[in-house]
Amino acid sequence: MSVLAFAEQRNNTFRKSAFEAVSQAKILADQLGKTISAVVVGSNVENMAAELGKYGASKVYVVQDPTLSNYSTEGYTQAVCEAVAKAEASIVVLPATAMGKDLGPRVAGRLKAGIASDVTGLTVEGGRLQITRPMMAGKVFQKMIIKTEKQVISLRPNVFRATEASGAAKVEVLSVSLNPIRAVVKETRVESSKKVELTEADTIVSGGRGLKAPENWDLLTKLAEALGGAQGASRAVVDAGWRPHEEQVGQTGKTVSPQLYIAVGISGAIQHLAGMSSSKTIVAINNDPEAPIFKISDYGLVGDALEVLPELTKQILKLKGQ
């Protein structure tokens, strides 16, 4: 019996959350007295597989085929399920990324397993996984168990730590005769490789109506760039068409928990607060001293966003010696 981690890669590069999944699978395997293995799926991925040994995997299964160079739900589901069978895995751990969120439920369905998605807490009690995961964007946390023999869990990125240790993994390439894939990814369009993904960012600078007009957004972008962070937005400015929907933070957008969240000109509607209140340090800049955002902020500054932003950017660049 073993715990199997799905190590996500794109363009033959592991995501950080792949290492988080392997490290956490290792912790669970140790606590449950099981072995730990990982699976890498893609095209020509055999050479990168051994790296997972550093994060605790003792065995890495590789399923590679030119048709797997792009992600596909069906191809990757079959590949992971073959590894589950080979490893005799009872627990499958994935990252709750765009890929993992799509893949995990399909794998669970195939295995007739129960699934817990976007998990933020895991313990073992009496040989059983005790799972914690946020609901309603973090307004409440669900404590749950999975009742089936096989269990699938996806881990929220940036919550569990990727721990490097000394260790080597045995790599085994599985020969899999792939079923035809019906939903085929024809193209992957990544806008900018430099852009930091919101849900994985350590620092987020978010803006709202307080920026007064979309042409002022540049001031926020400059601060985000000075901090090496990602940009977020309130629902109000997304609905107004100032910003693309993928930047929306909140219950109907993305839930984020960076080290530093700076809310600029965002008053703090309940649905926005739900999406960001698990951030480690929260800073609010708003011209209304009564804005609800100040009630959950570690540091607050009452002031006009358009006046404060350039000065804040300037002083941060100065601090960083630039």
């Binding site: 765009a98 085929v184 990814v185 024809k186 193209e187 900018s192």
Partner: peptide, 11 residues
């Protein structure tokens, strides 16, 4: 939608 971009899928 994926992180930082999109995938175009035919099915």
């Amino acid at each position: 939608e994926i992180e930082g971009g999109t995938e175009v899928v035919e099915l």
